[in-house]
Simulated scan of single mutants.
Amino acid sequence: MRGRDKAIIKDLERFRCLSRDDIIKLHFSGIKDGVNAANRVLRRLRDRGEVEVITSQSPYVYAIKPSSIKRDSQKIPHYLEIAAVYHQMAELRAPDVFVPEPKYGKGMPEPDAFALWGKPMFIEVQRNQFTPSVWAEKFARYRTLFHRGTITKEPWQNPQAPVFPLLIILTEHRIPIPEGLPFKVFQIRSISQLFK
């Protein structure tokens, strides 16, 4: 298997699924005819049984095979939004680390992504409007993670000056943020607003 094939499969594992256009941005952006090149490679990977295609979306969406994602999953647009956030960041400067849906244990927050992008940040991508009680629960989980201190042992931390990541909420709707949180929260519409 070629190096680019392995890299595509690795990104499909990392992001859970990607559209053909996402794959072009990640792996074929410097090629003159990236669309045709991507289509050839993805067809070859599909024929070899490495990836599966979800044709209900346009452009087609790809996932590793066997996929944990059902072809009609309501999570597909959410996974594609996480990939879109990565692309927005990479247009400005590629993050040093970008982990979709990191796991911190039972009862802990489940951010949509963790990124090391100048500063460490948890990213929540909100396509739907949640009730204040749902947000209160989310903030409580982040507060618990802060007080547990386990985040200070992450490999990206500076042991002499550990920090808790910023919480970036990408949303069109204002969210009530509790007073006295021990970490910073930013509500913005797009990643580019972090620089304003």
Results as ranks from 00 to 15, higher is better:
173 H>C: 05
101 E>I: 05
175 I>C: 05
172 E>R: 06
63 A>M: 08
27 H>S: 08
117 W>V: 00
99 V>Q: 11
119 K>N: 12
33 D>L: 15
52 E>F: 00
118 G>M: 03
196 K>F: 13
9 I>A: 12
186 F>R: 15
56 S>W: 08
64 I>G: 10
91 E>L: 15
166 L>N: 09
98 F>C: 08
130 F>A: 13
66 P>S: 09
195 F>K: 14
85 V>F: 05
47 D>F: 01
108 M>K: 12
193 Q>H: 05
29 S>M: 07
159 P>C: 11
181 L>D: 08
192 S>L: 14
181 L>P: 04
43 R>C: 13
84 A>Y: 08
59 P>C: 03
117 W>A: 01
192 S>T: 10
60 Y>T: 08
49 G>E: 11
124 E>H: 02
53 V>E: 08
102 P>F: 04
48 R>A: 15
135 W>E: 11
179 E>I: 05
188 I>P: 04
120 P>C: 10
177 I>L: 10
38 A>W: 06
8 I>C: 00
121 M>F: 04
165 P>H: 06
65 K>W: 13
136 A>I: 02
184 K>L: 13
63 A>H: 02
85 V>M: 04
46 R>Q: 15
193 Q>R: 13
67 S>L: 09
190 S>W: 00
187 Q>F: 07
165 P>G: 06
96 D>P: 00
114 F>E: 07
28 F>I: 05
38 A>I: 10
42 L>R: 10
12 L>Y: 02
147 H>F: 13
126 Q>L: 07
77 P>V: 08
140 A>L: 11
109 P>T: 03
53 V>Y: 06
117 W>E: 07
138 K>H: 02
35 V>K: 13
92 L>A: 12
